[in-house]
Design a protein around this nucleic acid. Structure first.
Lengths: 336, 336
DNA sequence: TTGTAGGCGTTATCAG
DNA sequence: CTGATAACGCCTACAA
């Protein structure tokens, strides 16, 4: 049979409350007592029972990560960060996939209701669902959104997607490009609008007229990048000299089409992406992109949930991004 | 305040035990009673408290997924499968990363000890650690290994890696290749040895003498594939006509080197990988590879842990693989 | 600095 | 078929 707190208490000749105090690092325990308890606990291989602890304290020491079919690299990075924060505080991370469509349905409330966790991390595009955030609020569950857009009603960890897209576009313009194509992300994602905004703002400030025809739909998938590129590059006499895809997978799609059409990258076409996923360094030429601090975002999100201070006052944490310049954009018109 | 089982019992005019019976689908409840309880429970938005249930039944309804830095796509697929099985049974999946080196240290026992889950899924390379499996047995924790090699002392979900490598190599030989290079995986992974075994067996049966020089070290990373390819392709007068990489990332590395050296794939060099990760369809030409039923493995693994039958008799479940032939190998010597 | 009593919300036992 | 009552292992109050 497994040792319980009572066993430890008996062996150590103290009350169970004292053992509890020692185990939870509470003050007001004599050092000698503390040491003795620790010793006995170790010798008995005592492990606190999470369920019992949870029942008594009405805490579960569990955090749930809610996600839709985000890219594998994105989701694993968020996970790593969140788990790191959990480990430091004796928490564990639960995985809960939830299709975006379901977020607006009654099922969502049921699923969340039985979850019984201390907090929930929402990742895009779920973090953009107002309905979902309402449900969470109604259920009185702490939650934090990992999201690109500003929200003042919830805790949020974000990155300034618009600013990043602005800077990237400005960089392309500085390379001499004036004919720049843009591939949109999945319409459900808030990031899609933000990135487009930054793109358009940069063109605007540079006095370049927006060519609506060169803004092409996409959904963050490689395949959609291929289709968008086929559209953007279809007219040999009038095509962009640079294409900014809203993520790396779609940028890879562009490169693949360029290769097939004999358009050499970066000499005849500059390509850049967003996210700095592993693929950015695997394709050739390597991809210019925006590195998001995804790992750190996961860490921050979990930390906010775990910390007990000011649970009410919504806090927004904006993290830095970084432009990663690689070969795929080193061939702008200015170089010719 | 949240509704408890007692509230439901009062409202429905029955005892809490009866409510409990209804909720757990136990027999011996009159249909009328059952319906009434269900109704009240719904109207009260009653959700059973996991901690309380866990305490009383000494079950946590939690399964942990233990993993090292497996590839993002591998780990997310396992996750999806495992979660699916969990959901069907009211379980949840906990994520526990653990570096392979740590698996042999005392920390592992501590971490696992406090985990308090009903079962553990081990993924490669952790599933190959005898020490880790011993710890789990000592802690009396149910576990199932997702692993390529045969083990008769634990529950295991596996795929016949050796056979898959054998078939793939045989396929290459049938295409007319006799000079075939092989890139090994990470030495910590049991899959590495199995795949090599299958490769060598195929050469053997075809009466082709093994060229040790053409078996190159790797570690499953893209970078290591690049290095291995640089080695294998270094001598223009004597190089393999096909390279079989132990996974897709390394195969992508090979293609990248081939591109740089002006060796066209598949005309001058056939390349194949293993795993059928997304990258296999993103690189060009698309990669011939082995599709593992990773999702299904995760599902099976979780199902075994959840099911309560024959918990002692170790069961091994071998799943099917599939050879996926794509462009990267459609240029063997026979075609010329 | 330490201990005692009571309860957290379920499930299990055993009687009706 | 149903119900009272006792665990389950820990934490929170409140005493001492």
């Amino acid at each position: 049979m497994k040792a319980t707190i009572t066993d430890v208490a008996k062996q150590a000749g103290v009350s169970m409350k004292t053992v509890s105090r020692v185990l939870n690092n509470e003050p007001n325990v004599a050092k000698a007592t503390r040491d003795r308890v620790m010793e006995v606990a170790a010798s008995l291989q005592y492990r606190p029972n999470l369920a019992a602890r949870g029942l008594a304290s009405s805490k579960s020491y569990l955090i749930a990560l809610l996600y839709d079919n985000a890219s594998a690299s994105y989701i694993t990075n968020i996970q790593r960060g969140a788990i790191e924060a959990c480990r430091r505080n004796g928490y564990h991370l639960l995985l809960e996939p939830m299709p975006y469509e379901q977020a607006n349905s009654p099922e969502a409330e049921i699923l969340l209701g039985r979850l019984g966790v201390d907090g929930v991390i929402l990742t895009p595009p779920l973090s953009d669902s107002v309905v979902l955030r309402d449900i969470l609020r109604r259920l009185d569950m702490r939650h934090v959104a990992v999201a690109p857009n500003k929200m003042d009603d919830v805790h949020a960890v974000r990155m300034d997607d618009a600013e990043a897209a602005f800077q990237m576009t400005t960089y392309l313009i500085e390379q001499g490009h004036r004919d720049i194509g843009f591939i949109l992300g999945h319409p459900n994602h808030g990031a899609t609008a933000s990135r487009r905004l930054g793109f358009e703002k940069a063109l605007n400030e540079a006095g370049i007229k927006l060519n609506e025809d060169w803004i092409s739909a996409g959904d963050f998938s490689f395949r959609s990048g291929v289709q968008a590129a086929e559209h953007l590059l279809s007219n040999p006499d009038n095509r962009p000299t640079a294409i900014f895809a809203s993520n790396d997978d779609m940028a890879a799609g562009v490169m693949s089409v360029a290769g097939r059409l004999g358009i050499s990258v970066p000499e005849a076409l500059s390509v850049c992406g967003f996210d700095d996923t592993p693929i950015a360094q695997i394709i050739w030429p390597q991809l210019t992109t925006v590195a998001q601090p995804i790992h750190k975002m996961g860490f921050k999100a979990a930390s906010i949930l775990i910390s007990r201070d000011n649970p009410d006052d919504p806090k927004i944490c904006t993290l830095d991004f970084e432009l990663i310049i690689r070969e795929s954009t080193l061939g702008g018109p200015l170089l010719k």
